[in-house]
Amino acid sequence: MHRIYVPSNFDIGDVAYFFEDTINTITSLNLTEVCFDFTRLTFIKPAGVVSLWNLVDLIGAKFPFIQLYYSIPDGYVQKPLLYPSVDYLDDSLFFEKVMGKRQHVASKPRSTTNGLEKLHHGKYNLMYIQNTISWLKGNVSLRKKSFGVLETALGEVFNNINNHSRSVIGGCAFAQHYPKNKEIHLCIADTGVGIPQKIRTKYSHDQLGNPLHRDCDAIMFATRAKVTTESTPGNRGMGFDNLLAIMGNNKGSMTIVSGKGKLTYDYNASTIISPDKIIIDDAAHSLPGTLIMLKFKTDTLDIEEEEDLEWS
């Protein structure tokens, strides 16, 4: 049986290569059985978690006759703490959602994670947003905070998936709270057409007349206000622009990976290097669909307070 080793370090920078390499391997070798081997995994973050599930689902959709197996370290069941990354995946419900059961009997969701959740195609997934906010408010240090901006951010991303991605398998989401760093990380990914391809269905150049040759240029263009491929009549192209405004007000950061393109907005980025705090680049490998990582600062969240709107 062919073994595909999950990368030892699996974060946002590793996702595109792993997707591309896995799909190419299955295709070129005409595999009918594949074993995902987790024995080399030493470090994984939310982007890796959501990407693993999306990859498994994508393989199921592209290669419906393939049999998938999974291999975890032999000693994990007896001594899970010796394998913290596998333990983290287990507690994140990855093995339960993908293999049908948790691997260790004592595995349970951690208070700092919201558990992996599937986002269904064509459905708004309001319940995921509500559950995420309930989970955050369960943390004593965050109870009085207003999470409206997180809800809006998730809403903008979910609308983008529903209106534009055409992802047959939907996508998935995962959230983690880092209390020491005072951050909340939300990672949402789909395996649809991707932003660059979608943008190029309507635009060949940006607002300055520059050709959208690179995928990162297409992503950058998509974040501009009023840029829309008008997949539905209500689209006016403000979703990504709103997302950038939210992350800027929060003093947080946002990374979008789609195709070969990557865009990172970081409030704390050096304005000498990047005046608008945005860095874009194309990688060597292409990620099908779109992955968005939002990193919110918790100490800049407002306290929940009711107010009426004062028009200026």
């Binding site: 207003s146 409206g148 009023k226 403000m238 405004a245 407002d302 009711e306 107010e307 709107l309 200026s312």
Partner: peptide
């Protein structure tokens, strides 16, 4: 502005509404 009154709201919602209108009006 004269006739649409937003009440029982919060800062995030109000900022979004004002910002969204300004984007259209300034455009």
């Amino acid at each position: 502005k004269a006739n649409l009154k937003i009440i029982d709201s919060n800062k995030a919602i109000n900022d979004s509404i004002v910002r969204r209108f300004k984007q259209e009006v300034e455009a």
